[in-house]
Amino acid sequence: MIDSIIIDGLAFALPMFIMAIGGIFSEKSGITNLAIEGLQGFGAFTGAFAMVILTNAMGTGTQVPYYISFLVAAAGGMIYSMVHVILCIRFKANQVISGVVVNILAMALTSFLTRRLNLMIFGETSNKFILETSVRYDVPVLSEIPFIGAAFKRVYPFEILIVIIAVIAWYVMYRTPYGMHLRACGDNPHAADAAGIDVGRVQMIAIVLSGGLSAIGGMCYAYSISANFSPDIYLGLGYLAIAALIFGNWSILPTLGACLLFGFARSIGHEVIKNLGMPSTYNDLVRTLPYVVTLLLLIFFSKNNRAPRALGEVYFRGKR
């Protein structure tokens, strides 16, 4: 039972973590990013579409389409994130509104396209791209360790990918010139500009990165909890990721903690219901747990939050 709590908790938390990392990049550069929800959905859509096409072409015997689908998802998310870039940076729109707009467009666009593509290519009327659930591995040796070994049992390949990306993300953020420029833009874009940094460009790259990372997160969910792409992917997990990064104070490691908390809240709930033999309708109550935990945590912790100083500020060059 403990094993499945850890296994399911991680499988839920890590995709959220990678979305939150994307969010941290965007918000640390000064751009409020509520668009994560739409970005992950759009990414999952492109990835799932690629997967469906590739499996049709290459058959089911190979793992290649699986990995390609992640690349395609990331590319899709990055391209789609340009909508947020254009609205926020080019058209100086309110970033909160822009984020919501991007999400609504993603929902409408992907539902429409899924139906359309299904009809055009497969001649079916369906609003889903059916995927298979991802394969899972036991990490040799490590998974044998009692108790914590569960963290290495039945691991999705993407979980490992996410951990690697997280390390790289930390390095980029805190050790490279780009990371330094990015954090500077979020604190004082005027100062960054005066130092010769192209604020718009830094922010654009940050949003696009966040698009790619969110998309990978969305693709993970498509492979794990739903085993398909359908409009049901818009479960608000992107918003949960935002709550996680707020709770994690815009730093990568504490944000991981927040994601794990949400993940375990959920998996514990499911286990409890399963073990007590309650009817499956109770699962709907369990599904509220991550959201409830988020709210409670925000109540206790958001007072001493320190958001990036220039977060959400529309940057005008000439403004003095």
Binding site: L235, G236, Y239, I242, R287
Partner: peptide
């Protein structure tokens, strides 16, 4: 954030 959480 809070209203989205409450929605779900």
């Amino acid at each position: 954030v809070s209203s989205i959480m409450l929605n779900y």
